[in-house]
Design a protein around this nucleic acid. Structure first.
Length: 574
RNA sequence: CGGUGAUUGGCGCAGCUUGGUAGCGCACUUGGUUUGGGUCCAAGGGGUCGCAGGUUCAAAUCCUGCAUCACCGACCA
């Protein structure tokens, strides 16, 4: 490709609405333009990268035995009503009507459509297992789209859905997808980690997220510093503190703490560490027989944070998790949220493992402006349960039993999930089994955020001058930069010849034939992030040489013109 | 959805307090100059000042409403 015939569309200044580096660089490098909130037009350079990512995903999916399909983006409401998500998905689902006033949705995902397709096509267990995938545009009406294509409303996704007669078969495909995903991210050249994203519900570990590690990541991931353990921070188990609990030494006593509501204020006032203060939160319980929702007290160590997902999973806790209002708390405790504690409460009390390990601790007195010191479990609070309800913090022991946890940030670019029968049951998707009996299929689903990978790759690969593409997904592999081509016939001829040879060798070349000054060309090629550059100048031509420069390492070497093709082929690592 | 802020040429911004019908840099066009790291000089083209209404002799500027966009928060198979 010649720049004079290409739409490079690079810009010097950063549009003011770009926040993170990948968004800024994608705009500056002429990859995307914003059309509306969370909607982007892809310019030629952006499309090239997107297609590269797609192609790698496609190849690895095919290799893993999945079969490509293409499903409609516009889907009839009936299917969503059948699965129940017409009502449960709510605002994220973009709905609209056609000229006949029939309801439709813009597909945010395709479980319904694929399950409908398979229930029509598949009738016998002999046709299973089956793993179908597509690479297609999705639309989710996110409440807050941000970070450019990273969290856009319209985005490109690979989604695969597998169908099985039973759990064993599902597990096999799940494992195959896990390996395929590792292959994909290895080939993309990204620093990523598979992360446990769920456990429990069906038993074992049934969901993994694949995260590209980056400071700007929206998700926090807990890693063991001495094993392969990695889990979404929401899922990481917080173990009970080691050793036995200290004995109760102090007597229970009340102390005035005027104007001290938060743990930090109480700790400062009493000149004690926050971890010796217990904080008490109230959530609503499931409705009882009378239809009323009691409160449940959750007690945490002052320096810890409630993990809402863990709390929501506690038996008896209303789902979705709802916090009690100040009025409800006052009605129960006789005090405001800043002065409440577990002593004397007439409701169910759940203490976090670490909070339950405290002795002689401080807690609200259930009397405005007062706290209790010397509080002890059992002695002062007869009935309580112990559970893991907090977020892990750096330094916690790893649940795998090896090492301590460290927390890093990641961008979720893949998610594999064992769905079970959720959709196949709702849509009555079954086959006849060996006994000739109808059996509901078991499903798995496997997503890769294709457009998000593009942004994540930039987050991980850039410098002050712009993007540094891994070879596998670079829009062009080689940039040809001639010096003064328009004044030197010799330069023009050599460059033209190199362009022909490289292109003939199957290498993607961007030949900068614009009538621009060298600085402009260097800056643009670096901004766009082309990994390998060849500079053709008079000086080196005298020795039948050109200069090679590596975008990532900055390495510069002189190459004999005759060797350029073979040298470049060796340097391209994909 | 709540909070905050923004909206002036393709992009980045000034002008608004104190009303008098718009300016700078980049980009673009033309001519010259320069040519291994975003040259320099000159001359040009391009704007219903987000939309609607109001106040006023006069509104980018003051008032009201709306829209769009962004940030923080909540939310996110």
């Amino acid at each position: 490709m010649r720049t004079s015939q290409y739409l490079l569309s690079t810009v010097k200044e950063t549009p003011s609405d770009a926040e993170i580096i990948s968004h800024k660089l994608m705009l500056r490098a002429g990859m995307v333009r914003r059309l509306g909130t969370g909607m982007f037009s892809y310019l030629p350079t952006g499309v090239r990268v997107l297609r590269k990512v797609e192609q790698i995903v496609r190849q690895e999916m095919n290799k893993a035995g999945a079969i490509e399909v293409l499903l409609p983006m516009v889907q009839p409401a009936e299917l969503w009503q059948e699965s129940g998500r017409w009502h449960t998905m709510d605002a994220e689902l973009l709905r609209f009507k056609d000229r006949h006033q029939r309801d439709y949705v813009l597909g945010p995902t395709h479980e319904e459509v694929i399950t409908d397709l398979v229930r029509r096509e598949i009738t016998s267990y002999k046709q299973l297992p089956l793993n179908l995938y597509q690479i297609q545009t999705k639309f989710r009406d996110e409440r807050r789209p941000r970070f450019g294509v990273m969290r856009a409303r319209e985005f490109m996704m690979k989604d695969a859905y597998s169908f099985h007669l039973g759990q064993d078969s599902l597990q096999q495909t799940y494992d195959a997808m896990y390996r395929a995903y590792c292959n994909i991210f290895n080939r993309l050249g990204l620093d990523y980690r598979p992360v446990q994203a769920d456990s429990g519900a069906i038993g074992g570990s049934v969901s993994h997220e694949f995260h590209v590690l980056a400071e700007s990541g929206e998700d926090a991931i807990a890693f063991s510093d001495s094993s392969d353990y990695a889990a979404n921070i929401e899922m990481a188990e917080a173990l009970a503190p080691e050793g036995s609990k200290a004995a109760a030494d102090q007597a229970l006593s009340e102390i005035a703490t005027p104007a001290a509501g938060t743990v930090a204020e109480v700790a400062a006032l009493l000149n004690i560490a926050p971890e010796t203060v217990a904080k008490t939160l109230f959530v609503l319980a499931d409705a009882g027989d009378d239809g009323k929702q009691q409160l449940i007290a959750l007690v945490l160590r002052g320096d810890h944070q409630l993990n809402e997902l863990k709390a929501e999973k506690l038996a008896g806790v209303a789902s979705p998790l709802q916090f009690a209002t100040d009025e409800q708390i006052r009605a129960l405790c006789g005090a405001g949220p800043g002065s409440v504690g577990p002593v004397g409460l007439k409701v169910r009390i759940v203490a976090d493992r670490s909070a339950a390990h405290l002795a002689d601790f401080v807690a609200g007195a259930n009397k405005d402006g007062f706290h209790l010191t010397g509080v002890n479990w059992a002695r002062d609070i007869a009935e309580y349960e112990i559970a893991d309800i907090r977020n892990i913090v750096t330094g916690d022991p790893s649940p795998c039993g090896f090492g301590k946890l460290i927390i890093k940030r990641g961008i979720e670019v893949g998610h594999i999930f064992q769905l079970g029968e959720k959709y196949s049951k709702a849509l009555k998707a079954g086959v006849l089994n060996e006994e000739g009996k109808h059996q509901t299929m078991t499903m798995g689903c496997y997503g890769v955020g294709v457009s998000r990978i593009v942004a994540a790759a930039i987050e991980q690969n850039h410098d002050d001058n712009g993007i540094i593409w891994p070879d596998a997904i670079a829009p062009f592999q080689v940039a040809l930069i001639p010096m003064n081509m328009h004044k030197s016939v010799r330069i023009a001829e050599v460059t033209e010849q190199l362009y022909q040879q490289l292109t003939a060798a199957g290498i993607e070349v961007l030949f900068d034939d614009r009538r621009e000054r060298p600085g402009v060309m260097f800056a643009d090629m670096e901004l766009v992030g082309i990994p390998h550059t060849i500079v053709i100048g008079e000086r080196n031509l005298d020795n039948q040489q050109v200069e090679y420069k590596n975008r990532r390492t900055g390495e510069k070497v002189l190459l004999d013109i005759a060797d350029v093709i073979t040298e470049i082929q060796q340097k391209i690592t994909c």
